[in-house]
Amino acid sequence: MILEIENINVHYGAIHALKDVSFHLAEGEIVSLIGANGAGKSTNLNTISGILHPTSGKITSFGEEITHAAPQTIVRKGIVQVPEGRKIFPSMSVWENLELGAYTQTNRAEINERMQAIFQRFPRLKERRNQPGGTLSGGEQQMLAIARGLMAKPRVLLLDEPSMGLAPLMVEQIFEIIREINQEGTSILLVEQNALMALSISDRGYVLDTGKIVLGGAADELLHNPMVIDAYLGGNNG
């Protein structure tokens, strides 16, 4: 199992943010975590990537425990988060943003090779390589954030709300990119509020509600589950 989360509990002080959450991600899968605001989706990702630590429970990757590992260790293991809200480095150029994505890699040639691959996939970023990240459009910034994640050559990409604040056309583009990345062999854990979009590209999904996983299963099933349709897919539209 590429990523396995077992009964984790996370607290922010007195607030119990995640309650006995368990799920897993198999090699080559796209798995979505969907849920409303404050359900604990981002907390979940931040816990996996080591920015937060659970009060109890266990996180393993390829059989190795990473529950209390530091973020940089987890990045080195190939589990890379693309943070929510396109947290790029606004006054650094696109190029420098990408280089930082490969911070754990010290081999110049390897970095250049990855950069080439990125520029091939995102020609837009190549054009804008010397522009400060903050001057890109919202969609380009999201591309940059994803590209920066790819620079670490991840085995698992943790995507936090990639559709946030983007125009519908851009959202489709981004999800297309996500699917491509997955087809090239990267497993993806996707956190989304846009449940329909997320489930439509996923293999499996989990529904998170006030810190608990209330539902899980194949994405197709979830798309037709009356409860999911009612709560997240806009009632009878689904």
Partner: peptide, 10 residues
């Protein structure tokens, strides 16, 4: 620039 993003980059 962004401490959280820096940590996410390792």
């Amino acid at each position: 620039e962004d401490e959280t993003a820096a940590r996410a980059c390792g």
